[in-house]
Simulated scan of single mutants.
Amino acid sequence: MRVMVIVKATSDSEAGKMPGTELLAAMGNFNEELVKAGVMLAGEGLHPSAKGKRVRFSGKERTVTDGPFAQTNELIAGFWLWQVKSMDEAISWVRRCPNPMEGESEIEIRQVFEAEDFGAEFTPELREQEERLRAQIDEQADKPR
């Protein structure tokens, strides 16, 4: 199963405070363990919401709002995408993670939907389209930008 591991923002991350060398090294070592174990598929930190945009949908209408956004504890400072055998395995890895922020912080784990989760509504034609798109994404990832 794939899971998205979400590092919640803090007032420091939203202020643009960058991690120090010690935390960067600890996270680098943790990421190396994840890669060696075949768990990590992707992982990135995110700029503060002040540099972000939100698009609100209402029927055919689209409204764009500039950051920063309120309620820092609901914002995302970074993420990983992991391939694990179970939610328990994901929890085990998160327990080993260095604290991603100075002081208190929070990490959320969410299971990623797989094709089989969608049932009969995900027709053979839609499955074929999904597989074709994933193959194109893999090809593009191999090309330099």
Results as ranks from 00 to 15, higher is better:
N73A: 13
A77K: 00
F69K: 10
S58T: 14
A42S: 13
G28H: 13
R62F: 08
L75T: 00
G59L: 01
E61F: 01
L34N: 05
T63D: 09
K85G: 14
G43H: 09
G45K: 02
F57D: 01
G28P: 04
F57H: 15
I76S: 01
T63C: 02
T63N: 12
P48G: 00
L81R: 04
V84T: 13
T63P: 01
T72H: 04
V64N: 07
I76V: 15
W80R: 06
E61T: 15
S86M: 11
E44M: 09
G28C: 03
T72F: 03
R62I: 05
V35T: 13
A70N: 05
A37N: 14
V39K: 15
E61C: 03
K53G: 06
A50H: 07
G52W: 08
R54K: 14
V55T: 09
R56V: 12
Q71S: 13
K53C: 06
T63F: 11
E32W: 05
M27V: 15
E61M: 07
E32P: 00
R62D: 05
W80A: 14
A50M: 06
A70Y: 06
G52R: 02
A50K: 14
E61H: 14
K85C: 00
S86K: 11
A37G: 09
R56T: 12
S86Y: 11
W82H: 11
G43K: 05
G28E: 00
A42P: 02
R62C: 04
W80C: 09
R54N: 04
G45D: 05
R56Q: 12
L34S: 05
F79M: 10
K85I: 03
R62P: 03
W82E: 07
K53T: 09
A77F: 08
G59F: 02
G28W: 00
K60I: 03
E44T: 10
D66Q: 08
G28K: 02
K36P: 04
F69C: 03
G43P: 02
S58R: 15
W80E: 05
E32G: 10
W80L: 11
F30V: 00
L34R: 00
Q71H: 14
G67Y: 08
W80M: 07
L81P: 05
F79I: 00
G38T: 04
S58V: 07
G28T: 04
G45Y: 01
L41P: 01
E74H: 08
G38V: 08
H47L: 13
F79P: 05
